[in-house]
Amino acid sequence: MSDLIIKGHLGIGPKASGEALVATDNFSARYDLDRIKGIFSRPAHKLFEQGYVGKVLVLNIAKGGVATAWMLHEMASRGMAPAALLLNFANPIIAQGAAFGQVPLIDRFDSDITTMIKTGDQVEVNPATGDVIVTQS
C-alpha cells in the first residue's frame, strides 16, 4: 500500500476525507440524484442506485443546470452531501455551490482524475493547496 499525491488547481471549501466513488460519467445534482434517499437516480448514470453521502465523488465534468448551486448547500444542511467533489472540469455552478455550501471541490488535475482514483480508495482532499492524497485499496 502506498500514498499517491495528485495535484489539481486550487479549489474551494474545507479539507475533507472519505472513501472514493468513481465513474467516468458527468455530474449534476438536479439531473442525477435522489437527494432524499442519497443515491444516484438517473438510470443512464454509471453510478445508478449507488449511495453518495459522505463519499468523495470522482467524476468527469459538471453538466446540466444551475440548481446544483443551491442543492449542495441544501444537501449539506441535512448531512446528505458528498464529502468532497473531484472533477476533471468543474463549471461555474459547481464552484458557486461549493463556495455557498462549503463543500470541498477540486478540478483541473494533471491527468484524468477518474482513472487515477478507484472506487473504495481512501482519499484526503485539501482544496487550499489543490492536493489529493490517495491511499490505494
Binding site: 479549489g11 474551494i12 448551486a69 443551491w70 441544501e74 441535512r78 463556495a99
Partner: peptide, 30 residues
Amino acid sequence: QVGDFFDAVDFVPVAQAHIMADTESLGEAG
C-alpha cells in the same frame, strides 16, 4: 472564492441579475 477558482483578475459590473431559486433546489435550508 469563485473568482480565484477560475483565475479571475478582477470584477466586472453587471447590468441585471436573474436568480434561479425554486424551493425544490432551495429546500428548507435555502
